[in-house]
Nucleic acid binder design. Sequence first.
DNA 1: CTATTTCCTGAAGTTAACTTGAGGTCAAGC
DNA 2: GCTTGACCTCAAGTTAACTTCAGGAAATAG
Lengths: 147, 147
Amino acid sequence: MSDISVGQLAQRAGVSVATLHFYEQKDLIHSRRNAGNQRRYNRRMLRRVAVIKTAQRLGFSLKEIAEMFRELGDDQDIDKDNWQRLSERWHKILTERINTLEHLRDELNTCIGCGCLSMDNCRLRNPDDTLGEQASGPVLWEDDSQR
Amino acid sequence: MSDISVGQLAQRAGVSVATLHFYEQKDLIHSRRNAGNQRRYNRRMLRRVAVIKTAQRLGFSLKEIAEMFRELGDDQDIDKDNWQRLSERWHKILTERINTLEHLRDELNTCIGCGCLSMDNCRLRNPDDTLGEQASGPVLWEDDSQR
DNA sequence: CTATTTCCTGAAGTTAACTTGAGGTCAAGC
DNA sequence: GCTTGACCTCAAGTTAACTTCAGGAAATAG
């Protein structure tokens, strides 16, 4: 048998036993039971946990990860094809996130000289760049007589 | 008086009244009270809330934000100098985050052809690139006879 | 055969960032 | 003067991702 126990899987995967129980509850991993009702995993499950942990490191939530697994139509094993599809998708999402951050950084650059942070005008504050109805123009620090 | 009520501040800042109460609990904002024990804010507080919301958008936690405010030695007002210092710091952190993501993306590229995700060898799995003691070499998918 | 260690389940606790609710007060309109 | 809307406080609920605990059973070492 190439089956391993929770304790072993936990140690090899670098997570706690409770975490594995938790993942099982969330349907992220699955197990068989032996005669005494103890969990037994195929060694391949190690890779699955590794994929989960890596995905988390890239910023995905367990919910998103579960969803990705479901979309792969996979219920146990992450094979070469699955991994390829997953990692290419992650790559794309990472690139998008990098672009978003660069965009925010650019807007921050603009704002450093302004500082208004107005709900209606500031692009840094307005996620979707929507302009308020009462366009009163950006208020520059220099012009802020309130100060 | 240029003082405004919670309701007004909430509306202008685009957050709920409960959120302002919450921020006050967390020492992120402060208020005076009128005769009837109701909160009154100086209009400048609006900018402070804007700064909080923007910081959150950039990925900072309220804890970190409170810490930044404390470091600015500021207890009420975010003036031009403070804003400049804050935003420059944010800029730097954003750049670091972008670099990290790019690094991860590069490692992902390498891993797409490998897929081992081994705790001991895979750079995608190992945050600090530490190598395990039992160096057994990366296991390529092609070589995985277990499959 | 017994002492340990590992496992099992179910429930409760933890942090973040809020939201919702309950019960009561304050201010403003008519 | 009274009704309604805005406020106040304190407590409890919510989601994520786990951890910790309690009480009991299975596997293993000697």
